[in-house]
Amino acid sequence: MPYKAMLVALAVASLSLLTACEQEVVFHEPGVYKGKHDETATQEAAERRQEQLRERAMTGMTDR
């Protein structure tokens, strides 16, 4: 009897623990980057530097 009661208590404890986890666990979508945000990787940042990099390539990499 104490063994059975112990099993029931364990089951209840496990269930309550799992229920508690549901709010805390972060579900990551597979294949999607989940690291830190990079401000220089954004569309706006790329557009800002686009013309400058283009000019740099035209002056630095073309033959004199």
Partner: peptide
């Protein structure tokens, strides 16, 4: 990026492939 098990790769808007070393 396709095989990375921790998905630490990302691509900038102008196509540069970078990764997060913390991941």
């Amino acid at each position: 990026a396709a095989v990375c098990p921790v998905d630490c790769f990302y691509t900038t808007a102008d196509g540069i492939v970078l990764h997060d070393k913390d991941l």
